[in-house]
């Protein structure tokens, strides 16, 4: 009997281990309008950005994607990939000799993005190594929560309306499974563009019938321009920055982002602000099919 107990104990993992393997379908009840139709130009709400990031975003011109072909097939960074078109397949590598978990692999619908999350204790590459869209990820268990650290990300965006995220950023993800639901809380530290960490969460439900097709992408010039043109707005000339404020009845200053605007105390600074009586833009945006403009 005691031998059996010893064997049972041996078969238990050294650390708490949750299996995240499976087909996961995204839930968009958080930040639906930003994640499905896409963010409005000039919407920097909820982002603790600095002045540099704000001006970069103000200068961003969506024509850049049409004119600079190299932008057309760029995937989301792995920190943003969880936000949108986030149908995800997770698999894992088990070392057959030791039965130890060596890595998780994620495959996202958008841009067929593949990422490996190493669990074998390896170090991150040196700082002079190349960066990738998915970055280099390692993880450790904290109880039943998997904490993933990603470095070596290529420059990308915090929000796909031009708000930048630098290649010096580190993303820390906390993966938590509750039955058939998965929550990932992502904390982004970016010494270049953030004054404090950006925290956001995304959710999925287990969908064994999900089939992720091939994404595919081929770049081609969409607007004829002379070679080397980089569309952008000169400082102070972007005409679209107030749209989000006007459409949603938000104070313009609040749409400009920054750490201060994230906290409840900021409401005290908005004396006299009255929320619009009813929502009339992207009011029921929780799936790809029910996002209505007006």
């Amino acid at each position: 009997m005691s031998k059996l107990a010893a064997l049972m104990l041996l078969s238990l993992p050294v650390f708490a281990q949750v299996d995240f393997s499976g087909e996961w379908a995204p839930l968009y009840h958080e930040n639906g309008p930003e994640r499905l139709p896409g963010p409005e130009l000039g919407d920097y709400t909820e982002l603790p950005i600095n002045d540099a990031a704000r001006l970069r975003a103000d200068s961003w011109d969506a024509d850049r994607i049409s004119v600079v072909e190299q932008y057309q097939c760029r995937p989301h960074g792995s920190d943003y990939a969880l936000r949108g078109l986030g149908n995800m397949r997770v698999s894992r590598d088990i070392d057959p000799a030791t039965q130890r978990l060596m890595a998780f692999h994620t495959h996202m619908l958008a841009w067929d993005s593949d990422r490996t999350i190493y669990m074998d204790g390896r170090a991150h590459p040196p700082e002079y190594a190349n960066h990738t869209w998915q970055g280099f990820s390692t993880a450790v268990w904290e109880g039943n929560m998997l904490t993933v650290t990603t470095t070596h990300l290529k420059e990308n965006y915090l929000r796909r309306n031009g708000v930048p995220r630098s290649d010096q950023a580190t993303a820390t993800e906390h993966w938590m499974r509750h039955g058939d639901y998965l929550t990932v809380v992502t904390v982004i530290d970016d010494p270049v563009f953030l004054t404090e960490p950006l925290v956001r969460s995304d959710n999925w439900y287990l969908d064994p019938g999900q089939h992720i097709g091939v994404f595919g992408c081929e770049h081609a010039p969409e607007l004829p321009k002379p070679e080397g043109v980089v569309p952008h707005h000169l400082p102070g000339t972007n005409p679209y920055l107030r749209e989000v404020s006007e459409w949603y009845g938000l104070p313009y200053e609040a749409t400009r982002g920054g750490a201060e605007t994230l906290y409840p105390e900021y409401r005290l600074k908005l004396n006299g602000y009255k929320a619009p009586p009813k929502c009339d833009r992207y009011c029921t945006c929780t799936t790809l099919f029910d996002c209505q403009l007006r």
Binding site: R74, P75, W111, N130, T132, W133, E155, H232
Partner: peptide, 27 residues
Amino acid sequence: KYQEGGTFVIPGHGRLCDEADVVEFRD
């Protein structure tokens, strides 16, 4: 594929790069 790798670019100073990194710098 998807604007990553392919031709690598060794800069005069700084980390190893590819075309996407040169685009950011050129921009």
